[in-house]
Design a protein around this nucleic acid. Structure first.
Lengths: 133, 133
DNA sequence: AATTAGTTTAGAATTATTCTAAAAAAGACT
DNA sequence: AGTCTTTTTTAGAATAATTCTAAACTAATT
């Protein structure tokens, strides 16, 4: 999947060459990469960059809400593009991570007994298991 | 809260002195401690033990389903007793972690569009935010 | 062009966790 | 109790993801 240059925008964030290319990599290969996987990948493009920069870019994206971190146990943090609210399913057989969307109109507060006055700024839902068939 | 010795059991797991005391610490101080917090605490009891042992005990409990890990970003993993299915709310003002129970009769599959045939073995729900009032 | 502020970089530092191999404890069996 | 076997505990070393540092670079601004 190709992403046009003008789509590589994160509101409120100056898009440097490196940020653009990291963001492109995330949009084009929707694969929940870790920082170091992303770094290896960047080395194969014509924007090789340091690992620290990959971390810097990702941090900036996360701060601006454009990217979401996926933490599974103590494994390296994985990153994914975050336009739609979603959770993750970690298939233990294949190791693959699948996005799982919220059911239409559903909300965490429908599932959980939240204390009164709770204001949620971030939701992380990670399921582990397998797909039988 | 005091826990009787005979309650310090995890089905299928040999309860050594150290495992008993770590388990007791988790039951008596329901505080989502990290391994090293737990270790510091153990040093104040009459069962001081090594950090490696704390990790070993916790790993055994998690494997046997008696204890749940709570991962918040890249912070040290926290541990909590796991008799009832629940999620966690991380109050960003106070840094405290609160348990949040599932609403009666509700289930993750009510919230999320899971692929057909999905078998869930572990659910981790972590919310971040604040409580306004 | 000079100045300023923000970004990238290589490499060092940090730190939670895991590993290692030896000592200790627990359990089983006479 | 004494021996054998298996499991657990331990201190310390090793690992690895991430963050930090300070210098070099880039971009925006006067």
């Amino acid at each position: 999947m190709k992403v046009q240059d003008h789509q590589l925008q994160v509101p409120g964030l100056r898009m440097t060459k490196q940020r653009k290319e990291v963001y492109r990599a995330l949009l084009e290969n929707q694969d929940h990469p870790s920082a170091s996987e992303l770094h290896s990948y960047m080395q194969t493009t014509d924007s090789p960059m340091s690992l620290a920069t990959v971390y810097n870019c990702l941090e900036a994206f996360v701060e601006h809400g454009a990217v979401k971190q996926v933490n599974i146990d103590r494994e390296p943090t994985r990153y994914c593009e975050n336009s739609v609210q979603h959770g993750h399913f970690h298939d233990q057989k294949t190791g693959k991570i699948h996005d799982v969307n919220f059911k239409n109109g559903m909300n965490v507060s429908d599932l959980l007994d939240l204390p009164l006055g709770t204001e949620i700024s971030n939701i992380e839902i990670t399921l582990k298991g397998s797909i039988s068939n």
